[in-house]
Computed example of a mutant assay.
Amino acid sequence: MKLDKFDREILRVLQQDATVSMAELSQKVGLSHTPCWRRVKRMEADGIIVGKVTLLNSKKLNLGVSVFIFVTLKNHDGDSLTDFEQAVQSIDEVVECHTTSGEKDYLLKVVVESIEEYENLLKNKLTHLPLVDHLSSTFALKQVKNTTQLPIKSQ
């Protein structure tokens, strides 16, 4: 789907504040209410807008430890990959899972309260994921940038 300047501006505004009213949104992007609403609905129907969420402050929720884990599997056939990917879905502390190129198969991002909690997660869940050969953990010391906004270009 081709996006014009109004579509892109709608996306930029909604990424900054998904709770903005349609009246405010239409004013900010320079469209009247109905055409703006139609564009939003079209982008939702086309799967460009996939949902609206509330972002939480992990530190205020005592979830200040972020761990990045490289995972190498023993096998790389389709069933092995599918089994691993399905199993990782059930671990709430895993907030992201990416397949990767190169020597490692996956990159996980885990968010927990403490190093002790991570150690428990590692021993009781992560090492028991299907076909895991090797896990390599790296602890984030400080978050320098955190954005959920995609870089929407003007055109």
Score class of each variant (00 low, 15 high):
Ala87Met: 05
Val53Gln: 02
Ile69Phe: 01
Asp7Tyr: 04
Asp17Trp: 06
Lys74Asn: 14
Arg42Ile: 00
Glu117Gln: 15
Lys145Gln: 08
Leu122Met: 11
Asp17Val: 07
Val95Ser: 14
Asn75Tyr: 15
Phe139Ala: 15
Gly30Tyr: 04
Ser136Glu: 13
Lys104Met: 12
Asp77Thr: 05
Asp92Ala: 13
His98Asp: 10
Trp37Ser: 00
Thr19Tyr: 11
Ala23Gly: 02
Leu150Gly: 02
Gly102Arg: 04
Gly47Val: 06
Thr19Ile: 02
Gly64Trp: 03
Ala23Val: 13
Ala45Met: 03
Gln155Tyr: 10
Lys125Gly: 01
Gln86Lys: 13
Thr127Asn: 11
Tyr118Asp: 04
Glu9Thr: 08
Asn75Leu: 11
Asp83Leu: 10
Ile152Trp: 03
Val112Pro: 05
Arg12Pro: 02
Thr72Met: 09
Lys5Tyr: 06
Cys97Val: 14
Leu61Gly: 04
Gly102Trp: 03
His128Val: 02
Ser154Tyr: 00
Ala87Phe: 05
Asp92Phe: 08
Val88Tyr: 00
Phe70Gly: 13
Thr99Pro: 09
Ser58Lys: 04
Glu113Thr: 13
Ile10Met: 01
Gln149Leu: 10
Phe68Trp: 09
Lys109Met: 13
Thr100Tyr: 02
Tyr118Cys: 04
Val50His: 02
Leu55Met: 09
Thr138Trp: 02
Leu129Trp: 06
Glu9Lys: 15
Gly47His: 07
Gly47Lys: 07
Glu9Phe: 01
Ile48Leu: 08
Leu55Gln: 11
Leu121Trp: 09
Gly78Cys: 06
Thr127Ala: 05
Met43Ile: 01
Leu150Asp: 03
Ile49Pro: 03
Lys125Glu: 11
Phe84Ile: 11
Leu108Arg: 06
Val50Cys: 07
Gly102His: 04
Leu55Trp: 04
Gly30Phe: 02
Glu24Thr: 14
Lys145Ile: 14
Leu31Trp: 01
Val29Ala: 08
Val65Ile: 14
Gln16Met: 14
Cys36Tyr: 00
Thr127Cys: 10
Ser136Pro: 00
Lys153Ser: 12
Thr99Gly: 07
Lys153Val: 12
Ala18Cys: 09
Phe6Met: 04
Asp105Arg: 05
